[in-house]
Design a protein around this nucleic acid. Structure first.
Lengths: 112, 112
DNA sequence: ACCCGTAATCGTAAATTTCCGATATGAAGT
DNA sequence: ACTTCATATCGGAAATTTACGATTACGGGT
């Protein structure tokens, strides 16, 4: 993969798409969308994956700016970053449309 | 990766997301969105990639149902599948919203 | 029938992803 | 301080992806 990146928006969109382009992670996002927030353990219970794997997926989603949360008390809570998916949807629209909404649904990006 | 697939929609969404989750392919999609249709050679000219690589990317996009076209005359034309990205956007919305529009923006899927 | 330009496919090396078990870290309770 | 429970990180094996050059196949002209 060369430079190839035309804009930072495009780069960010690809990062988010990569994060979503995995059955387990896509499923996690949906589970988080259903319930405002979830404890990691709940997710492990709902997925046919090891705890370490789920934790890793959550890390990827967090680094992509799709999910936020982490250790809070003895457990850890995760939830969707409010407008992350909305922003990605605009990027998926025709480029002109995406440009029109440019800067509207932004929200700081990944806190890392 | 286990079974993990909850629905065929989810599966299809992940396939499309994987196709888009690559800088070169994302760029190709945008190039195709700008101009109704493009000859493969034009795309090769606009990307820092070998012809065989671009062709392969087009194959992936076609198999994902995002792009349609192929050999037509001596060259080959490609264009976006009309409502493919629109459908994916609905899948990216909150699950309830996606369910509401279920079956509206469908269009046959990949012609291979 | 033969070439020529274009695109698709093949083989393959390098990089990345995915998953797990094992281990480390965090926060609370005893 | 120590134990416990839940989560994160590490190390590594297997699978997948990405990219390329080389080759093959397609369509139109000559």
């Amino acid at each position: 993969m060369k430079s190839l990146a035309a804009s930072t928006d495009e780069e960010r969109a690809v990062v988010m798409l990569r994060a979503l382009a995995n059955p387990a992670r896509f499923r996690i996002v949906r589970l988080l969308a259903e319930s405002d927030a979830s404890v990691c353990g709940d997710l492990v219970g709902r997925l046919p994956l090891a705890q370490s794997t789920v934790s890793e997926h959550l890390r990827v989603l967090r680094e992509a700016g799709i999910v936020q949360g982490g250790l809070q008390g003895p457990a850890s809570r995760y939830c969707l970053v409010p407008d992350a998916l909305a922003w990605l949807r605009t990027q998926l629209a025709s480029p002109e449309a995406a440009t029109l909404v440019q800067g509207s649904a932004r929200e700081g990006h990944a806190p890392n």
